Computed example of a mutant assay.
Amino acid sequence: MNKKVKLQDLGQKDYKDTWDFQEELFSGIVSQKIQKRETPSIETDNYFLFVEHPHVYTLGKSGDMSNLLLSEKQLEAKGATFYKINRGGDITYHGPGQIVGYPILDLENFFTDIHKYLRLLEEAIILTLAEYGIESERSQGETGVWLGVGTPFARKICAMGVRASRWVTMHGFALNVNADLGYFDNIIPCGIKGKAVTSLHVELGRKIDEEEVKQKIVKHFANLFEAEMI
């Protein structure tokens, strides 16, 4: 079992180009798994990508188009793009000031349990936010990381949506750090009405060092998954 995870920071990169890159890495791991049947000594790769996307809305395979509140012309006017994609979940927004993480893992190197995988991703974010004095939690039946669950001020700070096939994962999480939350007004985030979104900089009242946040996420991810980041 290969617990080494290749960490790459792609900087700011177009959503479709990043999606294509994810698919390339995903397909490579699946090919390795097929070869491994014949040659058990072959190790399968694992990756963890950080990226920041230009303004984009993405809709998961079970999502509802009515949760996008903009026309094609309005999207163009806002300098945003839209993609219907192959992850779970509904609609979300990605943009500058948001840390997006895409773990592309062969879960057979770690554990074969998608529920556990999602809970550990959430835990990595919860532990990261705790380092900034922010108490966050899960909301029952709603994947992601939230603040103020059970109060009238429930708000999501990190969205998650993944795809897994043959125990290989792709897509991941999007943590609002210094993001312009106004872009969320153009959707019903994750298809959940009546709940707000927030970010680290709104909660703390100051601009946050995104590189520092990434380092904390990597530290907690490595500990939780017992992984070696390379």
Rank of each mutant, 00 (worst) to 15 (best):
25 L>H: 06
56 V>T: 14
130 A>H: 05
29 I>C: 04
32 Q>F: 11
39 T>C: 12
73 K>I: 09
125 I>R: 04
103 P>Y: 08
74 Q>I: 02
47 Y>E: 01
20 D>M: 13
51 V>S: 00
17 D>A: 15
102 Y>F: 12
45 D>G: 07
113 D>P: 02
85 I>T: 15
67 N>Q: 11
132 Y>T: 03
102 Y>C: 09
132 Y>L: 02
112 T>D: 09
89 G>C: 04
107 L>Y: 02
125 I>S: 06
80 A>S: 12
129 L>K: 01
101 G>Q: 00
129 L>Q: 00
62 S>D: 12
130 A>R: 14
133 G>L: 10
99 I>W: 00
127 L>P: 02
40 P>Q: 11
50 F>I: 12
74 Q>E: 15
66 S>H: 13
32 Q>I: 07
106 D>A: 09
120 L>T: 05
60 G>M: 08
84 K>C: 10
49 L>F: 06
15 Y>K: 04
67 N>L: 12
128 T>K: 09
127 L>Q: 14
24 E>S: 13
29 I>D: 00
98 Q>R: 09
33 K>I: 12
106 D>M: 08
86 N>E: 15
52 E>V: 13
40 P>F: 07
77 A>K: 15
50 F>C: 10
19 W>T: 07
63 G>I: 02
132 Y>H: 11
72 E>M: 10
52 E>Y: 05
30 V>I: 15
53 H>W: 04
81 T>C: 12
80 A>Q: 09
61 K>P: 03
36 K>I: 05
20 D>V: 13
130 A>C: 01
129 L>I: 01
116 K>H: 12
129 L>F: 04
119 R>K: 15
95 G>E: 02
33 K>P: 00
52 E>H: 03
43 E>F: 10
29 I>K: 01
107 L>N: 01
94 H>Y: 07
128 T>C: 06
114 I>M: 09
39 T>E: 14
77 A>D: 15
110 F>V: 07
43 E>G: 06
52 E>C: 05
114 I>T: 09
94 H>A: 04
80 A>Y: 09
110 F>H: 05
47 Y>V: 03
27 S>E: 14
39 T>H: 13
43 E>A: 12
109 N>V: 05
88 G>R: 10
105 L>F: 15
91 I>H: 02
83 Y>G: 09
129 L>D: 00
22 Q>S: 09
94 H>N: 05
115 H>V: 13
114 I>E: 02
89 G>W: 01
70 L>G: 01
19 W>G: 06
79 G>P: 01
50 F>N: 05
85 I>E: 11
117 Y>P: 03
60 G>S: 07
110 F>Q: 06
126 I>E: 00
81 T>R: 15
21 F>M: 13
100 V>S: 01
15 Y>N: 05
127 L>Y: 08
29 I>W: 01
63 G>R: 01
81 T>F: 08
111 F>Q: 00
27 S>A: 14
